[in-house]
Design a binder for these strands. Structure first.
Lengths: 252, 252
DNA sequence: AATCAAAATTTGTACGGACAAATGTACCAG
DNA sequence: CTGGTACATTTGTCCGTACAAATTTTGATT
C-alpha cells in the first residue's frame, strides 16, 4: 500500500474511500449545520477546487452525489443552490404483491366481464378525482389466480383518450396502465393508493360469497399523468378474511 | 452556431443535445432490440470509445445514464452487464399517511406504555424475521391524535444494538427508525410492509373498544439494514371500522 | 429610468492522460 | 484435482485542459 499518486495533495489521504465521497460527506455536514443554509448558493466549483486542492472532476463528482441525494440543485450559469438540509430518501417500489391466501400464485388473471362507456356524474367524478361530464371506459371484471380462484372484484375506469384500447384490454394479461404507457405517449407519474375497509353491497357480496353488508377491503389506485390528470382509476373489492397486502420498498 | 469544437468527429453532430445522451439512447435501443441481450456484457469502455470515436469520459457518461435507468450493472474488473431490456421505473415514496377518520391530524403521538427487554423465542423470531435467542427492546404503546383519540395499538421491537435509545424513545415524537438512523451509523435500506386482516385478541379488543374476536387490521413494518438485518419491527393494530391507509407514490 | 447588448460568471460537455482497485483467468505447485 | 499466485482485463478515481451554453451582471444607449 503505497501512496496512491505522486501528485495527490495532503488533504487526500489514502483511506480506500475515494476523496470525492469524503468531500461530499463534509459538504453534507456543512449543509446540515447550516454553514450553507437552504436557499443559498454553494461555493463555485472553482472555489471548491481551491479549498480542497482537488481537480474540477473530483469536485463535480462530489456535487453530483449531493445532487443525487436531493440536497442541491445545479444550474448552468447560476451555481449550485442548497435546496434541502437532509438527504432525500428515495424509495423504489420494487415489489408489490397483492394476494389473498394465494401467496405463490404470483400470476393473476383479469377476467373481464363487461366493458362499457359511461359519463361521470358528480358522485363518480368525485371518486375519480376529476370533473363530471367526462367520458370513461368502465371495465368490470375480477382478478383471479391461474387456478381460477377469485382474488377480488375490479372496476377499472380508463380515460376516454385511450378508448382505442377497448378490445386490447380484454386480451391483455398484465397491468392496463402498462399497456397505456406503451401504446400512448404518456407516463404515469403518480399513483395514489388507498386501502380502506368497506361494507360490501349486495352484488359484490354475492360474487365474493359473502352476506350483504359484510366487511370487505377496498383498494383504490389512481394513476396520474404529470399534469395530475387521471389516466386510470381502479377499484378492487376484496374479502376481509385472508386479506393481505404486502409491499417491499427499497431505498436506492 | 458554429461547429462546437475543432476536433469533434463526424459522429458527433451539433444538435444541441449532448453526444453522450445520443450515445446512451442508441445503446438503449440496441439493448431493447436484443443486440445486447440481458445477461451479456456490453463492449468495454475502450471498445465503445473506438466505435463512437469518443473519449472515455463521454462513454462513461453514457453508461452512467444506462446505469441510472437500471438497464446495466457495472462492475470493476468485470465489465458492464445488461440486466434489463427496459428502463426501471423508479418511484419515490413521497407521502404516506396512515389515518383512521382523522385525516387532518397529521401530527400523531406515540404514547409509550411499557418498555421492556425480551428474548425472542421461535414464534417471535419468526415474526421478526430473525433467529431466536436474540434480545430485543419491546416498546408497547399506542399512537394517538393530538386530541388523544387512539389510532392504533403499537408494539415496536427495536434491535438490541440500539438499546441505548431506551429512554430517548419515550421522549421521541417522530418515527423511531429516524431516531436510530440519526444516532447510529445505520441506514434503513428496505422496508417490508404488510397489511392484513386479523381477529383481535381480548386485550387488544378492549383497548380498541371492540369485542373479543372482532375483526381488525394489522399493519406490520420491518425496517431492514443493508445486510437484511432487521433494525426495527413494528406491529400496529387498528380497528376495522374507519380504517384507511393511503399512500402517494411518485415517479422520479 | 428603461431597454437592449455585451461581458463576466458558472455549470455543462468533451478531450487527453495516468494509476488504483476489483475481477477473472491462466499457470504453477502440492 | 485443489489451492494459491501472478497476470491480464476492465471499471474506478483523479489529474489537466478547453470550449459551449445558460445565467447574471454590467454598461451603454435611448
Amino acid at each position: 500500500m503505497k501512496s496512491r499518486k505522486a501528485d495527490v495533495p495532503e488533504a487526500q489521504k489514502r483511506n480506500t474511500i475515494p476523496f470525492y465521497r469524503k468531500m461530499a460527506g463534509l459538504l453534507k455536514s456543512e449543509i446540515f449545520s447550516e454553514s450553507y443554509p437552504v436557499g443559498a448558493l454553494l461555493p463555485t466549483e472553482q472555489e471548491l477546487c481551491d479549498r480542497f486542492s482537488a481537480s474540477r472532476y473530483t469536485v463535480r463528482e462530489a456535487l453530483r452525489l449531493l445532487e443525487k441525494d436531493g440536497m442541491v440543485k445545479r444550474l448552468q450559469g447560476r451555481g449550485t443552490e442548497v435546496i434541502s438540509k437532509s438527504e432525500r430518501t428515495v424509495f423504489a417500489q420494487s415489489l408489490t404483491s397483492l394476494s389473498q391466501l394465494y401467496d405463490y400464485a404470483a400470476e393473476t388473471h383479469l377476467v373481464v366481464e363487461r366493458v362499457m362507456r359511461i359519463v361521470s356524474d358528480e358522485t363518480l367524478a368525485n371518486d375519480l378525482g376529476r370533473l363530471p361530464g367526462r367520458e370513461w371506459i368502465l371495465v368490470e371484471g375480477m382478478r383471479t389466480t391461474t387456478l381460477g380462484d377469485i382474488i377480488c372484484i375490479s372496476h377499472i375506469f380508463v380515460h376516454q383518450d385511450f378508448a382505442k384500447l377497448r378490445d386490447e384490454i380484454k386480451a391483455n394479461k398484465g397491468a392496463i396502465h402498462r399497456l397505456i404507457e406503451e401504446r400512448f405517449d404518456v407516463r404515469v407519474v403518480e399513483v395514489h393508493q388507498e386501502i380502506s375497509s368497506v361494507s360490501l353491497e349486495k352484488s359484490m357480496a354475492r360474487i365474493l360469497e359473502q352476506v350483504e353488508g359484510a366487511d370487505g377491503i377496498l383498494v383504490t389506485r389512481r394513476y396520474l399523468a404529470d399534469d395530475d390528470v387521471p389516466i386510470l382509476v381502479s377499484f378492487n373489492w376484496h374479502r376481509l378474511a385472508g386479506f393481505r397486502y404486502s409491499q417491499v420498498i427499497r431505498r436506492e
